[in-house]
Each structure stands twice: as structure tokens, then as C-alpha cells.
């Protein structure tokens, strides 16, 4: 035992270190990856109606450029609040090449959140949570990536940081 304890400590340390370095501990396999993205039509939040109309239908925007669908909730603290500035930054960087669409459950709470973070990309709301069901959502925030071929290309069930957004978006650029 006298000789072996350093090995045991080292093995435990290595195991835990590896456990923490897993790229995405919350990664859940999605049957949707590689399949056509389910369509949805949702009401657009008030500040974005001038540019995007009363409602947003996903299928009308597919095929032109890749789409990031981010699902969040204003009650989801701190994860969604941590992610919001990075989402805004990713939009600023990729807005010409990628369409961003963000879905919240409630319009009123969502508007407060938008005012707080000054989010500039289109936002829609989904009071019944049907998109979450169609996409087999795990929890908020969750980000889905749809490629130019209208297929789901990636999924991340956790707040993304700038590097995470880059890595995800680079898959389809």
C-alpha cells in the first residue's frame, strides 16, 4: 500500500480531470442530427415586427444561410443571463452569414430581458413550448444549428461562451 497510494491518487486525479475536461458533459445524443429541421411558425416579439412581420415561419428562411435557433427563458438565471452577451456578440460577428432566431416562452418577460441586454436579433415567443417538444429540448438555454441543406447539424444543451459559439457555427460555414 505504501508504494501504491501515489498511483491511486494519481489515477483518481486523472479520472476527475478527464471528467471535467469532457467537451460537453451535458451532450445528449439527438435523433434530429442530420434530419430535416422541424418547421415552426411563431409570433414575433413587438420590437422586431417592423423588420420581420407579425409572425416568423422557419421554412421560409431555410436554404439561404445556416440558422442558429437559441431557446432561452427570462427566468433562467444565471445561465441564460451569462449567455446573452455572448449570443449578442456572436450575432454581431456572424449576422451576414448566419440567421439568428431566438425563442422565449413569454413575451412580457422576454421584453424586459431584451431591454436589459439590448439584443438586436429577431426574437419570437412560444407560449405553448411546442418548438421545445418538436426539437426534443433538454433544458434552457439550448442552441440548435441548422445547415444550408435544412438539416439539424448540431445541438448544445448549456450556455455557450464565445468559443462555443465559434466552434458550433464553424461546423456549417
Amino acid at each position: 500500500m505504501r508504494r501504491f497510494w501515489p498511483l491511486i491518487v494519481l489515477a483518481l486525479g486523472g479520472l476527475f480531470w478527464w471528467g471535467m475536461q469532457r467537451p460537453d458533459m451535458n451532450a445528449l445524443p439527438s435523433v434530429l442530427i442530420g434530419r430535416p429541421a422541424p418547421d415552426f411558425t411563431l409570433p414575433v416579439m413587438f420590437p422586431y415586427r417592423a423588420s420581420w412581420g407579425q409572425s416568423f415561419q422557419l421554412s421560409k428562411h431555410l436554404g439561404k444561410k445556416p440558422v442558429i435557433v437559441n431557446i432561452w427563458a427570462s427566468w433562467c438565471k444565471p445561465a441564460c443571463y451569462d449567455e446573452a452577451p455572448h449570443l449578442q456578440a456572436a450575432w454581431q460577428e456572424y449576422q451576414d452569414r448566419v440567421l439568428f432566431i431566438v425563442i422565449d416562452a413569454q413575451e412580457q418577460d422576454g421584453l424586459t430581458f431584451i431591454r436589459l441586454f439590448g439584443l438586436a436579433f429577431p426574437q419570437v415567443f412560444d407560449p405553448l413550448g411546442t418548438v421545445g417538444v418538436d426539437y426534443g429540448m433538454y433544458g434552457v438555454p439550448e442552441t440548435l444549428l441548422i445547415n444550408r441543406e435544412d438539416r439539424v447539424a448540431g445541438r448544445h444543451a448549456d450556455p455557450l461562451d464565445p468559443a462555443g459559439f465559434d466552434k458550433l457555427i464553424q461546423k456549417v460555414l
Partner: peptide, 29 residues
């Protein structure tokens, strides 16, 4: 605090997991 294993008790995971791992190894050493 590390998120290394999923649990209902877990706090948000973050960089703090690494320092607690270091502390754990230090105690054992």
C-alpha cells in the same frame, strides 16, 4: 461544484471544480 457527475444537488459547474480537485489531491498527498 465541478459538474463531473450529474446530480440533483449540483451547483452550477465552473472553473472552481479544478481548484477543488487540486485541494482534494493535496489533502490525500
Amino acid at each position: 461544484r465541478s459538474g463531473v457527475i450529474q446530480s440533483v444537488h449540483a451547483f452550477a459547474s465552473g472553473p472552481i471544480g479544478v481548484v477543488f480537485l487540486g485541494f482534494l489531491l493535496l489533502v490525500l498527498i
